[in-house]
Design a protein around this nucleic acid. Structure first.
Lengths: 126, 126
DNA sequence: TATCTGTACTAACACATATAGTACAGATAG
DNA sequence: CTATCTGTACTATATGTGTTAGTACAGATA
């Protein structure tokens, strides 16, 4: 379900947080879906349970999940807000990168190509 | 000439490397321009000389600068290659972010707006 | 010679990451 | 009830990275 890259410079707990966040935002995991238990996921990923717990604590703090002692951790209901937040981040990042690319000589045509925008008149996808 | 943000999670030496790299790529610093000496920049930024030297070593390793013992460090001549490398990075990043944004519901119109592309017909900003 | 430059090296400290082990409280199936 | 699952809290330890501190040496130059 999750993919951890040990060569990645980002810490494991952060990769777990991002992974479940993406799954929740993209609706791959629907609200109230139960996450693997702290110990179970630790075994699956061969990672210390403390690291998993740190990720789960962060996920709950961010509102991606909710936890019930003795029962488990579950995907939150309001992922719409999270999606809007993520889209705002993406907008800021893309705008900044596009600005830098333009300063280095990138043209509109190049940028459109990079983003694979359907810039012809006839419409989008089937 | 450089701006260091201590609240930034990125290490200082990396900010210095990126700063001079940008100045070189964008031709704000022309080839053979002398950089501040290790000790001088350390004083200006109130940073340990070792940290500056680490940045300078990395800059030379990346081909952004060249160093001559006893004389100083200078901007390299071939910044065109660096610019192309950076543009390739930007392309990869923008493509990836645009893909994610699209999966979250972003439309072509939104993306074009974010990148402030001058569409052929509709004009500039309100 | 005096003073600038880059460079190399060791030592120490702070911090984040990750592991290891133990423990406690609530939920649930037997 | 007991057994076993769940989340949670806590201390301790090891490790890697970033940064500072200090010393030293070699080359360039006025």
């Amino acid at each position: 379900m999750l993919h951890i890259d040990y060569r990645d410079s980002r810490p494991i707990y952060e990769q777990i947080v991002d992974g479940f966040t993406r799954l929740a935002i993209s609706a791959v995991l629907t609200p109230d879906t139960q996450l693997p238990s702290v110990r179970q996921l630790a075994i699956e990923l061969s990672i210390n349970p403390n690291t998993i717990q740190r990720a789960y604590t962060e996920l709950e703090k961010r509102g991606v999940t909710y936890s019930i002692k003795g029962r488990g951790s579950f995907i939150s209901a309001d992922c719409d807000t999270l999606r809007q937040t993520r889209l705002a981040e993406l907008q800021a990042d893309i705008t900044s990168l596009a600005h830098e690319a333009r300063q280095l000589g990138a043209t509109d045509t190049m940028l459109l190509h990079w983003m694979q925008v359907q810039h012809t008149k006839e419409g989008g996808q089937p």
